[in-house]
């Protein structure tokens, strides 16, 4: 299974991480995003205090941490949705500190939200079209002259249709986004973000509230982003997913980055276990325990069957 999904891009990403130290803030060979000393306080609570972190270009990096670790707040600082109390960060070498959210997106750093933000009373297609950048028809005066934006609109529609087909939403194109299921909304949000043609896609809990059947397809789409040369940074709680798709894992706890490492070994890092996963997270139940549990379950089942037949 692993071998099948390993592609050139994945190999390249893994090679970049191969000899890196496991320390928080370790320098990467080719960082797309470099963050320094970002601090965000809410009154007396320091929600985020990240000294230094770098995101490797062309990789899938997972940002994990217990609830309240400040992952989403950290996202909000980087994407301009909140104002940091201090710190600097650079995207592609350009300083992005204090840049408003819409300019961050235009620069090529596009995020999604933990609570999906589908634009309910717009159709799926309109949701997609909205993502396209530099639309002539978004200027007030040009909007009054349809011939000035029709051509571009057609090109955008074509691009949107391709993406919708890829995300298997093409049959829903004229439905209101509000009528989609939770998982479909996640797909739509991701597809819409891709309409911006980003370099760095930041996904805030892409799997939250998605049914297991859709999870696999969403995972595939995330991997696909790397195949197309994009960089992915995502927040996630589901450890199986993190293990499956990420090339590198950054662990946050209480606002700070406490460890980094490859997904296979990060779970056994003492700092991570202490801060987040608890002592028993990775150790499966011992064989004996497993057998006992199995036995109990079987007994309960048998008892039930017996009861049924006696009726």
């Amino acid at each position: 299974m692993r071998a099948e999904t390993t592609t050139e891009r994945k190999a390249a990403a893994l090679a970049a991480f191969k000899d890196l130290a496991r320390d928080p803030g370790v320098p990467k060979p080719d960082p797309i995003l470099v963050v320094d000393n970002v601090v965000r306080r809410f009154g007396g609570l320091t929600a985020v205090e990240v000294e230094h972190v770098e995101i490797q270009r062309g990789s899938i990096t997972a940002l994990i941490g217990p609830n309240g670790a400040g992952k989403t707040t950290f996202f909000n600082q980087l994407t301009g949705f909140d104002t940091a109390d201090g710190g600097t960060w650079a995207f592609n070498g350009n300083r992005m500190t204090g840049v408003p959210a819409h300019r961050v997106a235009r620069a090529g750093m596009v995020r999604t939200f933990q609570l999906t933000k589908a634009l309910s009373r717009l159709t799926v297609m309109e949701n997609m079209r909205l993502g396209a950048q530099q639309q002539r028809g978004e200027n007030f005066w040009r909007a009054l002259i349809p011939s000035s934006w029709r051509g571009q609109e057609d090109a955008i529609t074509e691009q949107a249709e391709e993406l919708l087909a890829r995300f298997k939403l093409d049959t829903k194109r004229e439905d209101f986004a509000g009528s989609l299921s939770g998982g479909q909304r996640k797909l739509l949000e991701m597809a819409r973000a891709l309409m911006v043609k980003p370099e760095l896609v930041m996904l805030d809990e892409p799997m939250a509230g998605v049914n297991p059947a859709l999870t696999q397809s969403l995972l595939g789409h995330v991997k696909d982003l790397r195949e197309q040369g994009m960089t992915v940074l995502f927040v996630e709680h589901d450890m199986d997913m993190v293990r499956d798709i990420s090339d590198w894992v950054i662990v946050m706890a209480q606002g700070a980055i406490i460890a980094e490492g490859p997904p296979d070994t990060i779970m056994s890092d003492a700092r991570v276990i202490d801060a987040y996963l608890g002592a028993h997270h990775d150790a499966p139940l011992s064989d004996k325990e497993l057998e006992e549990q199995l036995h109990e379950a079987e007994e309960a089942l048998e008892a039930e069957i017996e009861e049924e037949t006696q009726k």
Binding site: T79, R103, L122, A143, V196
Partner: peptide, 21 residues
């Protein structure tokens, strides 16, 4: 027009529109 689309999108969710540049 696309201009009106942005307006309607703002009505639905400002932050989403912001995140799309």
């Amino acid at each position: 027009s696309p201009w009106g689309r942005v307006l309607k999108a703002i009505r639905e969710d400002e932050d989403a529109v912001r995140s799309l540049g």
